[in-house]
């Protein structure tokens, strides 16, 4: 991996960690575990557009590890990892299907699958079928917050990134 690329990826880890920190300062909107904005997904969506799946996964894993170390608790690692891995895979497929267009749909798919992954982990960890009654709440919130992060990512990509020297890495956007 070229040094410049590695540095760019490291910057993205920092960026998503900062976004995560801001989000964790926001008090929970609804007292239901698993419902949150998921603002770090904005960074993941932008990365998916411009970098390969491997590089995006690298940034995401680093972000989850660091955020658990800095802000989280031991258990949240498993929730973040399962949700993150499932949503990354789903978003990658959606992104390719849509040819990187209509990012809001990719975001919604990501939010949905992230919450599904977390719910499955909660089911596995608590071993209580009752937690599955959260399903409709998590499906709805995942789609709505995913739409929001999707739109935000699309606008960031369109208006903000061109001013940040995007040309440096956009040449290798095909993966």
């Amino acid at each position: 991996m070229k040094l410049k690329r590695l540095t760019t990826l490291a910057l993205y880890v920092t960026l998503s960690l900062a976004v995560y920190a801001v989000e964790s300062a926001i008090p929970p909107l609804v007292p239901i575990p698993g419902i949150k904005l998921g603002l770090s997904n904005i960074i993941t969506l932008i990365l998916l557009h411009h970098f390969s799946l491997r590089e995006t996964a690298l940034v995401l894993t680093a972000r989850i590890l660091l955020s658990t170390l800095l802000f989280g608790q031991f258990m949240s690692f498993f929730y973040s990892l399962s949700g993150g891995a499932l949503s990354l895979l789903a978003m990658f497929l959606t992104c390719r299907l849509l040819h990187s267009k209509m990012v809001f749909l990719t975001g919604a798919v990501g939010g949905l699958t992230h919450n599904l992954g977390q719910l499955l982990t909660a089911f596995a960890l608590t071993a209580t079928p009752g937690v599955l009654s959260y399903l409709p709440f998590l499906v709805l919130s995942g789609i709505l917050t995913g739409l929001f992060t999707g739109f935000t990512a699309a606008f960031t990509d369109k208006y903000l990134l061109p001013h940040m020297g995007r040309d440096d890495f956009s040449s290798s956007s095909s993966s």
Partner: peptide
Amino acid sequence: GNPAAFLIGAVLILLSAASLIFI
């Protein structure tokens, strides 16, 4: 006209509607 986008959008809307009805 992208059928994939249409399909994904339709599935998402259906899932949201089903969840909302259930809630």
